[in-house]
Write a protein that binds this DNA or RNA. Structure first.
Lengths: 167, 167
DNA sequence: ATGAATGCAAAGGTTTTGCACCCCC
DNA sequence: GGGGGTGCAAAACCTTTGCATTCAT
């Protein structure tokens, strides 16, 4: 099992130090350009700037926050363009609506190579990513048994980290 | 593993015939009344009618659909009351925001005794419920290993049913 | 009689759309 | 110069709220 991208749980440092200051998708630009070209869409400075902000993030984000960021860095870029760009990036497969926060807000996240699930601490609100092969296996078996194929899934665990829990 | 509440997959009949025409929560009324009394809230015809419609369903629903249903059966009951009632029923523990449809709409569902996860067919859109003990076990182990407690989870699988897939 | 519930309409918030203008190809 | 992109504002939605009135207890 591996956990990454965040300290765990609730403040403890874990194994992700090396990755901490790297974007999740360093090579987004050629992928995006290729997608745009294939779809006969255009490479524009707005799209590039918004994408850059998104892929500089190391974590999940909500569109409203992104809009505020964009607005403060590039006052000329409006919310409509942000929404449009987010949708385009989703279609390009670079970004995905990954989960709902505990309060029900949609969070986006850069799609990286490997699949992971999420665990949200109900005390501190922190979102951790994890990958557990035995869960995946059990799941694939179940899907097969039920007669489904081509599955993907969203698996979010809402829990409390044990440290805070001891109070 | 058990699958219930629907034919599976995509039209095939499965094990849920006996349950098919029964509401998921036949005994909602005393529970609701008890909750209302405890909270010093009132039993009103509007709440009863809306609850009745909800618990007559055998499946998941979105608030917008419920509002349309209520509107057509009881034109005097407005959307605001529907929203308020849905929230009250959630607080009463009779109802819960259970998952997001593939299009991102929030679906509610009557809370019955036992936990289950969801699998949505990406072809026919049908939502199936299933419970798989080996997934649950793997999950509980993982949660423990990561140092979390008191977990609950939302696990939605998006897949294609094999029958349609053969076309 | 008291205070909660309702209906209505308005407000709040998020996301999409229409359109004139701009600019990349 | 054609067609997609952008910015702005308006529209479209969904959900919540305020308030006067009604109604359960």
């Amino acid at each position: 099992m591996m956990v990454k991208m965040n300290t765990l749980p609730c403040g403890r440092k874990k194994d992700s130090e090396a990755r901490k200051n790297q974007p999740k998708t360093p090579d987004w630009k050629p992928i995006l350009d290729h997608f745009l070209k294939a779809k006969k869409l255009r490479v524009t400075p707005q799209r590039d700037k918004i994408a850059e902000l998104i892929f500089a993030k190391k974590s999940h984000f909500e569109v409203q926050m992104l809009i505020k960021e964009v607005e403060s860095k590039y006052p000329d870029i409006g919310p409509a363009t942000v929404y449009r760009t987010v949708n385009t990036l989703c279609e390009a497969g670079l970004l995905s609506e990954s989960l709902q926060s505990h309060e029900g807000v949609t969070l986006y996240e850069a799609l990286d190579e490997d699949h992971h699930d999420h665990i949200i601490c109900m005390d501190c609100g922190e979102i951790f990513e994890f990958h557990d092969e035995s869960i995946e296996e059990a799941q694939n078996k179940a899907i097969k048994k039920m007669g489904f194929t081509q599955a993907n899934h969203k698996h979010v665990i809402y829990a409390k980290c044990s440290l805070l829990n001891k109070k």
